[in-house]
């Protein structure tokens, strides 16, 4: 975790994201990249000659106006904390800000974004953009709920495991964070339902492998009548976890990304910060 990319969007409380980045940077000696994407204008085709002209430029104008404020706020926090940092900003060709975040996330160890909550639930749009960033960047993403009273920490971590490719990806991608945690619990919901799951040893094997990385880990196979998503969220709450590590299940069908049921449920109802990997 030596290079952290923090997405800075003026509509969000950027301090929430910066707090998380600062917490990690102090423990891992990381360099922080603050990145603010500027949306492109909405274009409208004009016939004869066929050209695209800006139709709605309000978003771009607003972001451009906010840029100096965001940059100054970022630099001030970083200087105060005495961390190594840089600020980046570039203009996108569309309103989709995820594309810019993806491009910069690719060469970072970790990408930090916020999930926009309304009435406790994360909005569908926000879930979609987090999923987009995880899948397309191929890097682990730390998604922070926007409405939270708790400061970000990773002392108590719950890792969701089900022997799948995605859960393996998430577990190994989070090794360096997990090694600094005080308590890690590996949770496997209903291992008996997984074809390859040997119920007798369930998460013991992967727990041993992770423990070789100096991670203080216990494994906890859980039988639950509920589906994996709600069961994982419940367990994270019961553990009073600061961080929940999950594999991001999903595939793209043409342009559309389809998230797995459990991933979607957890992202909609985050009990704490979520680390995702695909």
């Amino acid at each position: 975790m030596k290079t952290l990319l923090v997405a800075l969007l003026p509509d969000e409380d950027i301090d929430t994201s910066l707090d998380a980045a600062i917490t990690i940077a102090h423990k891992h000696g990381s360099h922080i990249i603050g990145y603010m994407p500027i949306p492109g204008p909405i274009l409208m085709p004009v016939a004869s000659p066929m050209t695209m002209v800006p139709f709605d430029d309000t978003m771009r104008t607003r972001f451009r106006e906010m840029l100096p404020t965001v940059k100054a706020a970022f630099e001030k926090r970083m200087t105060t904390e005495g961390l190594s940092f840089e600020f980046r900003s570039d203009e996108q060709t569309s309103l989709n800000l995820s594309l810019g975040i993806i491009a910069h996330a690719r060469t970072s160890d970790l990408c930090i974004v916020q999930m926009w909550q309304s009435g406790g639930k994360v909005t569908a749009d926000s879930v979609e953009s987090v999923a987009d960033i995880v899948m397309a960047s191929g890097r682990p993403v730390l998604a922070l709920p926007s409405q939270t009273s708790r400061a970000f920490a990773y002392e108590r971590v719950t890792v969701a495991w089900n022997a799948s490719r995605e859960s393996a990806r998430a577990a190994f991608d989070s090794v360096s964070l997990l090694s600094k945690a005080a308590e890690v619990e590996l949770v496997w919901i209903n291992p008996q339902d997984t074809p390859s799951g040997n119920v007798d040893i369930a998460g013991a094997e992967i727990a041993t492998v992770l423990a070789r990385h100096d991670i203080k880990i216990t494994d906890n196979p859980i039988s639950s009548p509920s589906k994996a998503g709600p069961a994982i969220v419940e367990q994270a709450i019961r553990n009073a976890s600061d961080l929940l590590v999950i594999g991001a299940y999903g595939h793209s069908r043409l342009r559309e990304r389809i998230l797995g049921g459990a991933t979607e449920y957890i992202l909609r109802n985050p009990p704490c910060a979520i680390l995702l990997s695909n």
Binding site: A163, S164, P195, S196, I206, V209
Partner: peptide, 16 residues
């Protein structure tokens, strides 16, 4: 009784 490839893959997931 499972598929040899699935068995192998399940093992690979448990290693760095």
């Amino acid at each position: 009784p499972s598929d040899p490839m699935d068995t192998l893959i399940a093992q690979v997931r448990l290693a760095d």
